[in-house]
Amino acid sequence: MTAASTEARTGAERRKTGTHRRRDLRTRVLVPYAMLAPGILLFVAFMAAPILYTLFLSFQKTQVSGLGLGAGARTQVFAGVENYVTALTDPEFAASVGRVLLYGLVLIPTMLGLALLFALLLDSKRARATSFSRIAIFLPYAVPAVISSLLWGFLYLPGVSPFYFVFDAVGWDAPEILSSQLVLFGIANIALWGGVGFNMVVMFTSLRAVPSEIYEAARIDGASEVQMALRIKIPIIAPALVMTSLFSMIATLQVFAEPTTLRPLTNTLSTSWTPLMKIYRDAFTRDDIYSAAASSIVIALATFVISFVFLRIVQKRAFGQEE
């Protein structure tokens, strides 16, 4: 705004500009909040409030008087940290955590290793039928976990499985996947089948984003495809590897659908096989939402800590160049 134009203004005009400015200011403050409001409202209603309520419930318990029959016989009272003590000292809970850790150790390296291998193969110069292969590898991800567990469940049951039929016909002894020693691998296999495709697509997409000059330079320097994969591609897509690892770790802690769907088929999966299954059982089968709430908070905190520590350790290395 120049000095000349200011001088030219009449008083009325100036007053008008003033109201404009005030209105502008009000709009500028209000509009962002108004636009955020739906998001904030939904976040509060469906995330913050349930979390706070869960926190509240985790410090409560029921108290029954007498036979517990009829009105007012059951009241909700403050429990202190009782539910947390029970959750943390419960051998079933510890066992379920141990199981998912082992499950993660089996699943994550295999799944990400295969995903990386497929991504690198699809990205290599000599790859053929890439879009078909990409879709074929990705497709299982589109199958919901419950459905894929039902499918694999059929394949694991000796009485109805074509695999066992073939093994029988050839005269080999087929391993019993649903036995207590192998059931963990059976479930990891279902997650692997569904998860490789998704992780491969994430890795493949970041491989595609690498500028081709880098490869040309490497090729002029005489690097082989394998050398390029190991020395150039993998280091460059490290951030994608970190992200997929993190997602996989969180998914591992939360494994629920596969073992729950397979449970009716075998004696080897208990109702507390994974932490989330135990939480589900406590809340809905045993009707004890209080201890289920405490266990949920413990799992949520553990997920948070593990994610944080993991990122702390690998972030420097993976994102080093970006800083």
């Binding site: 009485g159 109805v160 075998t266």
Partner: peptide, 12 residues
């Protein structure tokens, strides 16, 4: 010793 109501049990 296997559960009832599985696809295998039905087939049996």
């Amino acid at each position: 010793n296997t559960p009832m109501y599985t696809p295998e049990w039905n087939a049996g």
